[in-house]
């Protein structure tokens, strides 16, 4: 295992782990029963990806439960709190389009992540479709749902440049990926009668920060909840 593969596995694994944790919070709270199934399904796919990736970098449980906030390498986008359903869907849209485009490229290459990406790309295509369909329904639904989507897009837009910063060990053309992402997201937002936000896609705080272990405030609380039981019983197996 080279250091750069480990760095990359941690970055991609943490993205999946943290987003899965956020989606797990929806269980029992979804707006319609079908979404209980769908959100849990997506969370489970992401957790599966996280386990494979973290296992490439070391022991999955040690990495998930015993690292502190400053050691996590996930994007700031995925750690954002669920907010309302529009907020969650917008976060899913921005991330799943990115992840889908990235995994397609990784699957097509011959790097260490090709086998994982080839398997996960079908799952991620489903996540992307789910997010796109809901973006259309909510954006082009009622005035209230439209307004909620507009606010969510504005709020999360500032985290959308970080996914395209180069990550050591992830061998893709970030600029091309970013252009493809912007085109795909613009197309969906416009079809959903939403306007593409005009604010910066990267504030100085958000730029590349999650990948360096600089996170937003809600993240520490999320980790405290996730790790508490495991940390209370050092050395135990479950």
């Amino acid at each position: 295992m080279t250091d750069s593969v480990r760095t990359a596995a941690l970055a991609l694994g943490d993205d999946a782990l943290v987003l899965s944790q956020r989606l797990g919070e929806w269980a029992g709270h979804a707006p319609v029963l079908e979404e209980e199934v769908a959100l849990a399904n997506i969370a489970l796919d992401l957790l599966g990806q996280a386990r494979v990736l973290l296992s490439l970098a070391g022991d999955e449980d040690e990495l998930a439960y015993l690292r502190e906030e400053r050691e996590f390498r996930n994007l700031q986008l995925v750690e954002q709190p669920n907010g309302d359903f529009a907020h969650t869907i917008t976060r899913q849209l921005f991330f799943s389009v990115h992840q889908h485009l990235l995994y397609e490229r990784l699957a097509a290459g011959d790097g260490p992540f090709a086998p994982l990406a080839a398997k996960a790309v079908n799952e991620v295509a489903y996540h992307r479709d789910h997010a796109e369909q809901w973006t259309l329904r909510l954006g082009d639904g009622t005035p209230e749902s439209h307004e909620r989507m507009r606010r969510a897009c504005e709020a999360l837009w500032r985290f959308t440049a970080e996914p395209f910063r180069p990550v050591e060990g992830v061998d893709v053309d970030g600029e091309a990926l970013e252009a493809a992402w912007l085109e795909a997201v613009t197309e969906v937002l416009e079809r959903a009668t939403l306007t593409v936000p005009t604010g910066p896609r990267s504030l100085s705080w958000a730029a590349g920060a999650g990948r360096q272990g600089i996170h937003t405030e809600p993240f520490g609380r999320m980790l405290a909840e996730m790790q508490h039981l495991h940390r209370s019983h050092p050395g135990a197996s479950w």
């Binding site: 782990l17 944790q21 797990g24 969370a43 957790l47 909840e225 996730m226 039981l229 479950w238």
Partner: peptide
């Protein structure tokens, strides 16, 4: 959100 291992978390989800 508090399951003590990733395997158990996946089973529970």
């Amino acid at each position: 959100t508090r399951a003590p291992s990733l395997r158990r978390k996946a089973i529970l989800m």
